[in-house]
Amino acid sequence: MSAILVTGSTEGLGRHTAEALLDQGHRVVVHARTTTRLTALQDLLDRGVQAVVGDLADHEQVLDLAHQADELGPFDVVIHNAGVIRGPSVLPVNVVAPYELTARMERPGRLVYLSSDMHYRGRADLAGVDWSGSGQSRSYSDSKLYVTAFAAALARLWPAVLVHAVDPGWVPTRMGGPGATDDLREGHLTQAWLATTDDPHALVSGRYWHHQHTQEPHLAVHDEGFQEELLESLAAHTGVTLAPR
């Protein structure tokens, strides 16, 4: 049995991932943006799931969330599922929060970050980036390129941790919308599988996955120069750097 935290798990892919892992017998901790949102998880809470609460767009709440998580940890796996598709919170939620939680929490054995095939449209350019969310300086595609490059950087810098990025596909969640053409079940299976599998193909860190198959990401993802620029920019904004290996 593994201890697994899934962020953004009140609905959609996060909830399906948490429920699948719970059904497999793992100890699961879910995450909600507010205590009110926990009502959507009551059936899972009744089955023994624990919860952490915090708005990933709010820096102080992210700090508290890291503390809450460590109080319930240590975790074998953290799945950074939470995300938003538009608005000024795109960078704080999709990139800054995963970075800061990773840097501040006790290090797990596995880390999974939700990417998107839209990361291929992202720009590997950090000039003038505003991580604070006071304005929308970057697109959703940019944010997914950044978090995918971050995952690749972690795989390089933390060799003892198994790190992956996952494209769940365009699935009919609240974010994806009713017109999404991909399979919702396929959308959550890969991250749940990567959290626990002993398949040798999945035990190679730093890969980019779609429906349990590896794919080549945007060229900038494995550009170490871009990775370092990204890490330095996030460290300067958050005041926390990644601990050495």
Rank of each mutant, 00 (worst) to 15 (best):
V204P: 00
P172G: 07
R185Q: 14
H213V: 14
V204H: 11
D182V: 13
S233G: 03
H211M: 09
L231P: 13
T214S: 14
L219E: 15
T190G: 10
E216L: 14
Q227H: 06
R185Y: 05
R174W: 05
T173N: 11
V240M: 00
E186G: 05
D167S: 14
S205V: 10
R174S: 14
A220K: 02
W209I: 04
P178M: 10
T190A: 09
A235M: 06
A235F: 04
G206Y: 06
L242W: 06
A202I: 08
P168N: 08
W170P: 00
T238W: 00
G225S: 14
L242M: 13
T196P: 04
R174Y: 05
L231A: 09
D183V: 10
Q215S: 10
P244A: 08
F226S: 10
T181R: 05
T190S: 13
T214H: 08
D223I: 05
E224D: 12
D182K: 07
H201M: 13
W209G: 03
P217L: 04
A235H: 08
L230S: 07
D182F: 12
L203K: 12
H188D: 02
G179F: 07
E224N: 04
H213W: 05
L184G: 03
F226I: 06
Q191Y: 02
Q227A: 10
V166D: 07
P200G: 02
S233Q: 01
P168R: 09
P244D: 12
H237Q: 09
G176Y: 02
Q212A: 07
A195M: 10
A180S: 15
L231N: 11
A202T: 03
D199E: 15
L231V: 12
D198Y: 00
A192H: 05
L242R: 02
E229M: 13
D199F: 08
L242E: 02
R185H: 13
H164Q: 14
R174I: 06
Y208M: 07
V221I: 00
L234C: 05
L203M: 14
P168M: 10
